[in-house]
Amino acid sequence: MNETAKAAPRRSVPLWVQIIIWALLVGLLAVVAFGLNRSQQGQVQPGANIPNFSMPLFSGYELNGKTQFDLADYRGKVVMINFWASWCKPCEQEAADLEGAWQYYNGTGKVVFIGADYVDTEPEARAYLQKFGITFANGPDLGTKVSQLFRIKGVPETYFIDQNGMLKYAQIGPFSSVDEIKAVLDPLLKQQQ
């Protein structure tokens, strides 16, 4: 890149070469700044509007008979999305609590629970779901698209999206009791009623 100027050793650097070099440097710094920003910003913060996304669901773990989850279909409900994986030990701590919370809210029809299986293999994932008796909708996070949307840093992480599609709460790491989950969800449910 810098060699450009070498062809004209007897003059000062031509203006167009200077412009190119500075543009390249600024471009590089911009790209690096972006990468840095991305690595620093961490997960999506509460208050952000979550754009629509869709995710396939495992057979046997469909949602209202649909084999695909679309966030847009659930405006007006509170959506809880939980990222997990079968190889993740801390996920096992909260699995029973999540199911417990689901049993509690299932009847109300105001809450949707979605499990997003983060980079996992299906047989192991199914074994895990069975082992912990999970009944709420679950599906693979194909191509890590959903987890990239939330910029998750690891599993488990759980995100709560309110009736208007706004992220209200992010739980990094496992929940330790059903009550903890209730403490997040109850205020959200009261919000618009």
Binding site: V32, A33, L36, S39, I152, G154
Partner: peptide
């Protein structure tokens, strides 16, 4: 941590000033 992946938790606050 600019080059790190999802599982590197090596969050560091020196990024901006280093930049």
């Amino acid at each position: 941590g600019v080059l790190s992946s999802v599982h590197a938790f090596a969050q560091s606050s020196i990024g901006p000033v280093f930049f």
